[in-house]
Design a protein around this nucleic acid. Structure first.
Lengths: 218, 218
DNA sequence: GTCTATAGAACGATAGAC
DNA sequence: GTCTATCGTTCTATAGAC
């Protein structure tokens, strides 16, 4: 039976599988990422995946869950800090989006700066059409969404709930698009936007989404 | 040898394959969409796909290309109309985005109103990680992108080229996110945003992207 | 916990009759 | 142009030795 309580033993195998899964799922999606790919690149035995994780589905679900949960915790932590900081006054929209977007792009999972594979993997997890993903979306994001919608409503009290939901959805879409494939960005721009300048990407994303959400211009 | 010149003969088989491919690729992506699925649902023989299209890859490339090209033509037609309409003055950003987004959501491919499967398929085509898609992205969108970037530059002369590219990329991301999966939207909103209210989606999308792009608020 | 070997199923593609 | 039948490949998953 796989044990999850003692990380000091040699579940280096486990960790190698997780890291390689993250990378290959980000690049290729669920169906195109084969266990043979993963085990070959991680330099572990093919049978190790089923021993440690039970199945391919359970592997990918566990990897995604393990990566997203700390990010969502960090998001809520920052949101709470903002609410405290602004006392009872509404938090500015761009500060709310900062707390929502930045933890994703700063997340590493290993402890050393932004992790492109992880960022891309989370975008992929959202657009992955495999059936077994549906339930996970709800589990991981329902409460978070309600929390952010409530806070945005407090900041934009004149906006109808429906409009608020539409614009929040568009903001999430923008964030996901910025994570999935920077190759598209390179193709579209024919410029040097690609090389993982996440500081700039995050800053642009927060400004863009805030302006789009509030639309005080029009 | 498959013939493409005479649509009056019975390539009803061809058409049934194309429509079913569109639907299943939109739902499941390239790898998870099997030819057995397609031919079963289209009620044609399994061997018909290879007879008419040569291979699974050629099938999906042909379907995507046939659907996207008319949309891109319509986009450029509307953009030209705007330029004429505004004489030599810069075209407002929201009008530019209108010409870019609306043809996608109004596209049908069959001649009768918005086609959800087609809209979703185009979003899927962008996020599809399969290797053989890369070249197609560039073929179909490089010129279009350059054209729109040039026009947006004329409307926002004070914006640096780099910023312009970043924000245009974010606008494309927003559009794609709005096409791919309305199930996510339903999960996130727990509301009745889902039922294909494309008029509302397009209007919100254009306003959102225009405001995000210009950011005259901040 | 790691390995080899393989079962069992599904896939894309094609040969050949009609 | 449509069909049946099947080849060859690749996949997930597992049995069993070490």
């Amino acid at each position: 039976m796989p044990q999850k309580m003692n990380p000091s033993i040699s579940d280096r195998t486990r960790q190698k599988i997780i890291r390689t899964t993250e990378k290959l799922f980000a690049e290729k999606g669920f169906r195109a990422m084969t266990l043979r790919d993963v085990t070959r690149e991680a330099k572990v035995n093919l049978a190790a995946v089923n021993y440690h994780f039970g199945s391919k589905s359970k592997l990918i679900l566990e990897v995604i869950r393990d990566r997203i949960e700390p990010i969502n915790e960090e998001r809520l932590k920052r949101l709470d800090q903002l609410i405290e900081q602004y006392a009872s006054k509404p938090v500015p929209v761009n500060a709310i989006f900062d707390s929502l977007f930045r933890p994703l792009f700063e997340s590493n999972g290993t402890g050393s700066g932004p992790n492109p594979a992880l960022i891309q993997m989370i975008g992929r997890a959202f657009t992955e059409p495999a059936d077994f993903m549906r339930g996970m979306h709800r589990d991981l994001f329902r409460d978070l969404t309600q929390r952010y919608l409530a806070e945005l409503h407090r900041s934009c009290p004149d906006m109808t709930i429906e409009t608020l939901q539409y614009r929040f959805f568009l903001s999430i879409s923008t964030m996901l698009g910025a994570t999935i494939d920077q190759v598209i960005l390179e193709n579209l721009s024919e410029s040097k936007l690609g090389p993982r300048n996440y500081d700039r990407v995050v800053a642009e994303l927060i400004n863009y989404a805030s302006a789009g959400f509030e639309q005080s211009a029009k």
